[in-house]
């Protein structure tokens, strides 16, 4: 076979070089990336379940973030946040108060970092609200923690819990909340969180 003409070699090198450069810049999605990501997410999920069983919270959070990055679905991420922020800080786990506060804050910080990109932010708002009000505030006694928790809950109600958990009950609660005088609204939220008509009972 005759050697390739110079023009063909230059063209091939240019095309290949540009594609490679694009890939290196992180702008291209080369063929084969998606199956590779699929395999990675599959393996990631196996490790996630193991970390959940081992109660290895830092790993659980890291793998949840990785799953969010790989699949964009956020189911594992939501669960990781719930386990670390709300679950690990529960008194029943018999952690020291400082430990409980630390886990709660770590989970909430991770959630806040990813809230604008998670597919279901309304689920995150629920975890955020209950963690701040039931876990963080009793330990930190900071008013801004309580306010942030109640604000998150109001936001969740405003969207009736999100598209996958739409509940007419939440919408009705929000409308009732709007009828309350602004000064009484935090108290209304607190009552509904703890009372027999709390969100968990809806």
């Amino acid at each position: 076979m005759n050697p390739p003409p110079l023009s063909a070699r230059i063209l091939a090198t240019t095309v290949g070089g540009l594609a490679l450069a694009g890939w290196m810049l992180g702008m291209t999605l080369p063929l084969g990336t998606r199956p590779w990501q699929g395999a990675q997410s599959w393996w990631n999920e196996r490790r996630f379940h193991q970390a959940a069983a081992d109660q290895d919270y830092p790993t659980l959070l890291a793998l949840g973030e990785r799953d969010l990055q790989l699949t964009g679905r956020g189911l594992l991420f939501d669960y990781a946040i719930y386990r670390v922020a709300y679950g690990a800080s529960a008194p029943s786990y018999a952690h020291l108060p400082a430990d409980a506060l630390s886990w709660a804050r770590l989970g909430l910080a991770t959630l806040e970092k990813h809230l604008p990109e998670v597919p279901n932010p309304w689920a995150g708002l629920q975890t955020q609200a209950y963690t701040l009000v039931e876990r963080v505030f009793p330990l930190s006694h900071r008013q801004q923690d309580l306010d942030a928790g109640l604000h998150a809950l109001a936001d969740r109600w405003a969207g009736s819990g999100g598209p996958t958990a739409s509940s007419p009950g939440l919408g009705a609660l929000y409308r009732s909340w709007l009828q309350v005088a602004p000064r009484q609204r935090p108290l209304f939220l607190l009552q509904k969180m703890q009372g027999p008509t709390s969100e968990q009972n809806l």
Binding site: M1, P4, V15, L29, P30
Partner: peptide, 25 residues
Amino acid sequence: WHRRGKLSGTLSAWTCFALGSLAAM
């Protein structure tokens, strides 16, 4: 690429892979 461009088969495949990657981006 292989016949007209006279590139080797493997290099042609890599070139098409790059073009396909660009098209799929």
